[in-house]
Amino acid sequence: MTGPTVALAGVTKAYGRQRAIAGIDLTVMPGERVALVGHNGAGKSTLMKLILGLIRPSEGRVELLGADPAGRAAGAARMAVGFLPENIAFSPSITGAELLAFYARLKRQPVSRNAALLERVGIAEAATRRVGTYSKGMRQRLGLAQALIGRPRVLLLDEPTTGLDPALRQSFYEILDALAADGASVLLASHALAELESRVDRVVVLNRGAKVADGTLATLRRFSPVSARIRLTLADPTDAAPPAIPGSVLAWTRIGGPVWETSCPDADKLALVRRLLAAPLELADIDVITPTLDEIYAGFLRHEAAV
């Protein structure tokens, strides 16, 4: 398939007067890994439910693998979809293997492949234990295993790495990479931006149901309203005056002792550093602090609030 696997056009979802999703356009291509980023209640889970057809949009159109996910032809599309809900819950008296067998049957997949799936997510040795005895991380991995049943073309993962330790997160993202390389679209909701760096192809930032940014991490960084910060340490620790740069007015903040900080747009930071080095200042050290993803994200939200 060459067209988009997930396509949303002008989708709005309103509950009464409250708009949970406001006019979102989004397309996800095969093999693409897209992160859906937003604070709690920004509409990430609602968007996933819309894509799954569990709720219908108030306005606009949703397409999943070329079909209306809430329509009659949705069954075929759902065969090729894997979903991991935010708070995965299973009935506690069933064993992991039984649970996976149930879901595999519903997807008309051979139960014999389940052992390999459990192996892949690393809980093969717990397959015959009751789910009630599983730790949070094991339940999360069982949840991932059920989402991987039957080589899905679209994966919707809602906060997939909560409860996983760093090593498991690593192996989790490796599984995602393999799936994307195999041509599956991966859409994952998260608010742990820092761990998404180099793990996704695109980031979509949601705020109060609206899309405020959509692009690669590099693009987001370039267009980010958050400035880079430049920190100077003056050679003379007794100097109480802010560093004076001829020909420019900069707002300096004293961090403590001889350490001063100023900010500038990301694009201008190189020019500013050149000027600082050329200025008649006795410098002990210079730091250029580029904004972290979390700061960029917070900046987009602040920017949005100010507009």
């Binding site: 569990l54 069954g75 065969m79 519903l106």
Partner: peptide
């Protein structure tokens, strides 16, 4: 939620 995301 999970059950209904399946083809049923």
């Amino acid at each position: 939620l999970l059950l209904l995301s399946y083809p049923v």
